[in-house]
Design a protein around this nucleic acid. Structure first.
Length: 570
RNA sequence: GGGCCUGUAGUCUAGCCUGGAUAGGACAGAGGCCUCCGGAGCCUCUGACCUGGGUUCGAAUCCCAGCAGGCCCGCCA
């Protein structure tokens, strides 16, 4: 268990716990919890034993503490109703550094797990540039993929490209029938910005002109019948927009293992097959077909799930069912990152899958929307902040900061660092918040470079790198010398990193890593203040260098599991 | 009206799943720290669990009822 020193020590504590329980003669186990730092590594709460033993918790704790403590523990200490497991500082330091040195740059990595995970995220409709609201999806999804991989999961990421449906056909119609004079200039020279002008204009025209609506409806029906030539043309328009979106995502370090095109589900007949399979269980109304899902905890209109329109065309969820049937063949665990507006839709999808006798459904991570102080993001009302603009602004500001403090660097190097820092700051500020919580977008917060922020973590990393750079080659020091408070605290945080990664991966809560990383950076900064490294006595200096190197690796891997860069200087 | 989610200092946020020791951190505010490895840093002070019940030795955490905000209840995606 060299990969996880904290788990290893915890299991020793757990063995002691069992012995305590045998000695006390209690049947129901009490939990081992992390103790407050000044009390020990772990603690056993004796309160739970009190009732069965008819003795006071303090009394029980006192007796329990007489059980001998195995290495690396120094002693068990009774404190009120608790038994605290006190570590031997030298033994603890030796164990942690043995682990980090064995794992090297991959410290934090857990052994590979058997299940194949297919993580679908982003899947934004290619109808325009990514705005900060939608950006939460790839930022969260990509960080989850990275964190899960570090925890040992085999993860494939996928973007479901929606190139089907009224929006997409309308967008296609716009690019065919309108000219750039009709729609006006794009805000940026990118395909997503160019095409969205056509889309917006076409939407406006369709709303005011039934003739346009008729043309679009006719196109949709051709499309749904599997007109391969038309499908290809519509898809080409989508591809252009997607290219623009992916360009933006590449800038923040997000990419995908695969893409799935929704139109393929129509061309290969799988949407048709889903419709046929659901047909027998459905009811008809005005030519449309629907399922009654009131068996599945849905009520009223929410239980009425229409999957074929009166024109015989499929709907988004119908195609999503076809997609999921294919998806499940390719993985053991499916995870979807979705906006919270998809909740009902998704429970309908799961219900429909169950009606079809499919026992499998993906897990879902729903994130709440990003709002603006003045209200909801709305492209139509012009109340929108594009991710590209946010990134440009962040990088500009980072450049000012770099220039202020690093006159020694070349212009090119300053630009590089500004890009790393600015982009990371934006990602961190979105990733750090629990998914279910609503984010109100404020420029000052999105661009924050101090306190709990990516630059704060990156700065600690750069400091560690700076020390190691000056120190030269690492020699083996004596870890037993690392007994100062700040050293022990840092060791504790280093030890807990692999567990923190696994916990975040298992609960699919990547913001926990964001919190961990910022706390860790704070702990490292305190060590930096209290424990001079380069000027310490030779043996202590070597030991501290090993500690700094371990901390450097934790910072680097914590940053990378969030998809953030770890520059050596900034 | 119904369903789901969220309510923690002036502001933002962790802890809630799995109940346990003085509720952790950041911003803003006040005051301090570079003859010493990088001041995007560090230290000190101020300040919070939406309300009311319940369960429990013990509740920010679990349960119930309110209140406030968000999302949804399209033959859109």
């Amino acid at each position: 268990m060299a990969h996880d020193p904290w788990l290893e020590i915890r299991e020793r504590a757990d063995a002691v716990r069992r012995e305590i329980e045998t000695r006390l003669g209690v049947a129901t186990p009490a939990p081992i919890v992390d103790a407050p730092e000044d009390k020990g590594a772990f603690a056993l709460a004796a309160f739970g034993y009190a009732k069965a033993l008819r003795r006071s918790p303090a009394d029980i704790a006192k007796e329990a503490a007489t059980v001998p403590a195995p290495a690396p523990f120094l002693a068990l200490r009774a404190d009120g109703g608790y038994v605290n497991f006190v570590l031997d500082p030298a033994a603890f330091a030796a164990r942690v550094l043995a682990s980090t040195q064995e794992m090297g740059e991959s410290y934090g990595q857990s052994p590979v797990r058997p299940e194949r995970v297919l993580l679908e995220h982003t899947s934004a409709n290619p109808t325009g540039p990514l705005h900060v609201g939608r950006a939460r999806n790839p930022i969260y999804g990509d960080a989850l993929a990275r964190t899960m991989r570090l925890a040992g999961y085999r993860v494939t990421t996928e973007y479901l490209v929606n190139d089907v449906g009224k929006q997409m056909v309308l967008q296609y119609w716009g690019t065919k029938r309108l000219t750039s004079q009709d729609v006006g200039p794009a805000e940026r020279e990118k395909d997503d910005y160019r095409t969205v002008k056509f889309y917006q204009r076409a939407t406006a025209l369709m709303e005011g002109d039934p003739k346009v609506n008729g043309e679009v409806m006719a196109l949709i029906q051709r499309f749904e019948r599997g007109d391969a030539a038309l499908t290809r043309e519509v898809r080409e328009v989508s591809e252009g927009v997607l290219r623009g979106i992916l360009e933006t995502l590449a800038r923040i370090g997000v990419s995908y293992d695969s893409f799935f095109w929704e139109s393929d589900l129509i061309l290969d007949g799988s949407v048709r097959r889903v419709i046929d399979r659901l047909g027998g269980m459905s009811q008809e109304e005005d030519g449309a077909r629907f399922l009654d899902l009131s068996e599945f905890g849905l009520e009223g209109d929410a239980a009425k799930y229409v999957f074929v329109t009166k024109l015989g065309t499929s709907l988004y969820t119908t195609r999503d069912i076809a997609y999921h049937l294919k998806k499940m063949e390719r993985c053991d665990v499916g995870i979807n990152v979705l906006g919270e507006d998809q909740k009902l839709t998704f429970s309908r999808l799961k219900a429909a899958l169950r009606l079809m006798g499919v026992p499998w459904a993906p897990e879902t991570i729903f994130y709440a929307f990003v709002g603006l102080p003045e209200g909801r993001l709305s492209t139509r009302k012009g109340r929108v902040v594009y991710l590209d603009d946010l990134l440009d602004e962040a990088v500009d500001r980072a450049y000012e900061e770099v220039r202020k403090r690093r006159e020694d660097l070349s212009e090119e190097r300053m630009r590089e660092i500004a890009e790393l820092v600015g982009v990371s700051a934006v990602r961190y500020n979105i990733a750090r918040v629990q998914a279910e919580k609503r984010i109100l977008f404020r420029w000052e917060e999105a661009l924050s470079f101090e306190g709990s922020s990516a630059p704060f973590i990156q700065y600690s990393h750069a400091r560690a790198c700076g020390i190691l750079e000056k120190a030269g080659a690492l020699r083996k020091g004596n870890p037993a010398l690392l007994v100062a408070l700040a050293e022990q605290r840092l060791l504790r945080w280093i030890a807990r990193f692999p567990s923190a990664v696994r916990e975040a991966a298992e609960t699919r809560r990547v913001h926990a890593i964001a919190t961990f990383a910022a706390d860790f950076a704070g702990v490292f900064n305190e060590f930096y203040r209290d424990c001079p490294v380069l000027t310490a006595e030779p043996e202590l200096r070597e030991a501290r260098l090993a500690l700094v190197d371990a901390a450097r690796i934790v910072l680097q891997n914590a940053l990378s599991s969030l998809g953030l860069k770890a520059p050596k200087e900034m």
